[in-house]
């Protein structure tokens, strides 16, 4: 019943945004695109978070996929669908491989191990001249199944494309979380031993989550690469990027699959204005916001929205 509500809500929102896309100012569209990218990664964190796992290394999949887009571009692939799907799939594959190791760890060990892997990627990218070293690589404007828009039309089309991808991701995650495997999530967090007694493998459950999560982060990275037109190790693979995703996840709360995107929009808007009005202070403003969120709204923006419409029953 509530799954339907979420899907209906998201569908309406996507349709409204698709229409608004044609009227909004360019810089607002850009914020939207960035929010889609960061929101996808935060959605990946949400999938893990519901099991009580926090990854401090999602920049690994995000950066891997963003560089995937840039390198495919370099090989002459220009189609957005191919770029995004292949790059995200590569990230998913990477997550599958690493999953065999990280699924054995929990809590801080899990967080630090994921961070270590992401810093390996950063090191490799920053030291390889072929990949542009710290300067990074440019990404050409993509084509969409043969359609090659320019200037403003390119951004408008990319926004629609982004919405389509995000819509697919949200539906997919919602269906997954409603499935038996997905519902195992909370069970694993509460009592791993009982889950094992029920006949499920905890490591298997976590491994699948990790792959889904990596895949989502991969989609985020690919969208970011196309939206910005540039990939570089500092923005894409450094641990501070991972920190931003955790920031967004905390800001958003884990109450609903749409929450990460709302959190991402809030994050981008705050950063936008902080950067503009506090040239020397923007980091302080960001940090202050995070502190305020943790102190006053520990369940994130989603819990505030729930209060607004009168629901008192917090995060499920």
């Amino acid at each position: 019943m509530s799954a339907d509500k979420t899907i209906i809500g998201v569908t309406i929102a996507v349709v409204l945004l698709a229409c608004a896309n044609f009227f909004i100012a360019d810089w607002i569209r850009q914020i939207g695109l960035l929010s889609m990218a960061i929101g996808s990664v935060a959605l990946g964190l949400l999938v893990l978070w519901r099991t009580g796992l926090i990854s401090f290394g999602h920049a690994l999949f995000y950066g891997f996929s963003a560089y995937g887009v840039a390198l495919l571009n370099y090989l002459g692939v220009r189609d957005a669908f191919v770029l995004v799907i292949v790059s995200a799939a590569a990230s998913g594959l990477l997550a599958w491989g690493l999953g065999f190791l990280v699924r054995r760890y929990r809590a801080i060990f899990f967080a630090l191990l994921t961070m270590a892997f992401s810093m390996i990627l950063y090191g490799v990218l920053a030291k390889t001249e072929r990949f542009g070293s710290t300067d990074g690589l440019n990404v050409h404007p993509p084509t969409f199944l043969g359609y090659a828009p320019v200037d403003q039309a390119a951004q408008i089309t990319l926004f629609l494309f982004g919405l389509l991808v995000i819509y697919g991701l949200i539906l997919g995650v919602q269906i997954y979380l409603r499935s038996v495997l997905g519902q195992m999530t909370t069970a694993v967090r509460e009592n791993e031993i009982r889950v094992e007694y029920l006949g499920y493998s905890v490591e298997h459950v976590i491994h699948i989550k990790y792959v889904i999560s990596g895949l989502l982060a991969g989609f985020g990275g690919a969208i970011m690469a196309l939206a910005v037109g540039q990939v570089d190790p500092e923005s894409m693979a450094y641990w501070t990027a991972s920190g931003e995703f955790v920031f967004v996840a905390i800001l958003a709360g884990t109450g609903n699959v749409a929450a990460p995107f709302i959190g991402a929009v809030a994050f981008e808007v705050i950063r936008h204005f902080a950067w503009e009005h506090g040239a020397n202070l923007w980091q302080l403003i960001m940090g202050g916001t995070l502190l305020a969120i943790i102190m006053f709204v520990p369940d994130g923006i989603w819990s505030v929205l729930q209060r607004l419409v009168g629901k008192k029953d917090g995060v499920k």
Binding site: W27, Q30, G136, D232, H272, A279
Partner: peptide
């Protein structure tokens, strides 16, 4: 309008767009 160049290329592209488009 003197603004911060830190944060890496991707962030700078976003800021550049903001300064032009907004």
């Amino acid at each position: 309008i003197i603004y911060d160049e830190s944060g890496g290329g991707a962030k700078q592209v976003t800021e550049y767009r903001n300064k032009v488009q907004k």
